[in-house]
Every structure is written in structure tokens, then in C-alpha cells.
């Protein structure tokens, strides 16, 4: 059961504490998070449901591969990080 962490920069806009989820993919994990925090969706994903250009995601220490479908496996992960990229500021 990974714990999802969010960049502290998001705290300027909305609350999003770390959350433990049971999910197979990053998409599933985020959908669980969004159920309780629907505003967070548009901060991390664009209107097409893709990871925003200047948001990055790591599963443990590995950057994700699929920024479109968010199909990366999180089932055995301990930590998932949603971070702001250094670009885009």
C-alpha cells in the first residue's frame, strides 16, 4: 500500500496531506485521492487527464514512464511522490 506524497507547493492552493491507498496503477491511486479531494485533480492533471507538463511523479525513486495514461505499477511501491518540476515556475 503506497503512501502518496504531494509537493508542499500545493499547500499554497489547497490542502493535500499524504494519503495511503491500495491501487494497481498510478491512475487508480490518484482517482482514489481525487474522490476525497476533487479540486486536486486539475492541479495535477490537465483537462485531458494527462499529468501536467510541469508536474513530475516518482514511484519510490523512479520517475514514471507513462504521463498520459498513468499506467505505471504502484502495487508494490512504498512511496509515490507528486512534485513540481523545476521547469514551469
Amino acid at each position: 500500500m503506497p503512501r502518496i506524497h504531494f509537493t508542499p507547493h500545493l499547500k499554497n492552493h489547497l490542502d493535500c496531506p499524504p494519503q495511503d491507498v491500495t491501487a494497481a496503477t498510478l491512475r487508480e491511486a490518484l482517482e482514489i485521492v481525487f474522490q476525497a479531494n476533487p479540486r486536486l485533480r486539475s492541479y495535477l492533471l490537465d483537462d485531458q487527464g494527462h499529468l501536467r507538463k510541469h508536474v513530475t511523479a516518482f514511484i519510490d525513486s523512479t520517475p514514471i514512464n507513462d504521463r498520459v495514461n498513468l499506467s505505471d505499477d504502484v502495487s508494490r511501491a512504498k512511496e509515490v511522490y507528486l512534485l513540481q518540476a523545476l521547469s514551469g515556475g
Binding site: 492552493h13 486539475s42 492541479y43 495535477l44 490537465d46 483537462d47 501536467r52 514551469g88 515556475g89
Partner: peptide, 26 residues
């Protein structure tokens, strides 16, 4: 927002308080 995209806020009290609205979606 550079990282988190386009957001729209509105205020009914001259900016004392703001609420986040929806944004257009393609």
C-alpha cells in the same frame, strides 16, 4: 500557474474572500 495550470477564482465581497470556480475544458 506555471506548474498547476489555469485556475479561476471569484469573490462576491470585493476580494475579502475568494472561491475557486471551474475552468473551461476541451
Amino acid at each position: 500557474l506555471g506548474h498547476f495550470g489555469c485556475k479561476l477564482h471569484r469573490s462576491a465581497d470585493d476580494g475579502k474572500t475568494w472561491e475557486e470556480c471551474g475552468v473551461p475544458k476541451y
